[in-house]
Amino acid sequence: MKRIYVNEKWCLGCHLCEYECAFANSGLTDMVKALKGKAIRPNIRVEDGNGVHFAVNCRHCSDPICVHSCIAGALSAEDGTVKIDGEKCVGCFTCVLVCPYGAILPSADGRIAQKCMLCLNNSCGEPNCVKHCINNAIVYEERG
């Protein structure tokens, strides 16, 4: 199963992935139009501290606790991807509480939860954070 992995050794803490994520999920084709003057709410977050940088997004766990905890049946695991259906989400945010990685967040309007869906839900078709990482710190690959 291909997964997103982050190599802390190569993460520079530039935070470019956050903006590429926000752009990918904006539904727009122009980054300036999509992001200028707006506070972004990306599904990937770079944690910084003590000279260490690490981009964190959904691990798409093989036994996802968020899916088990979802009271509305909005979260599901399919072909190794943990997906959220915004139509079904009731905004209880149990998933936000239980995710051990802090990778699920309330959406901008605060009504439903949002999470990384490997850009399968937008026009990118492949994880945009991986595509634009300037130092190959974020990779999407098969590992044993």
Binding site: L12, C14, H15, M31, K36
Partner: peptide
């Protein structure tokens, strides 16, 4: 200025400290 989205990537990547973010004006 029309294209800059103030993502601050330039600021984080410059070891010469050329770029800075003005929080007041964003």
């Amino acid at each position: 200025k029309d294209r800059c989205i103030a993502c601050r990537v330039c600021e984080r990547q410059c070891a010469n400290l050329v770029h800075s973010f003005d929080a007041e004006t964003g």
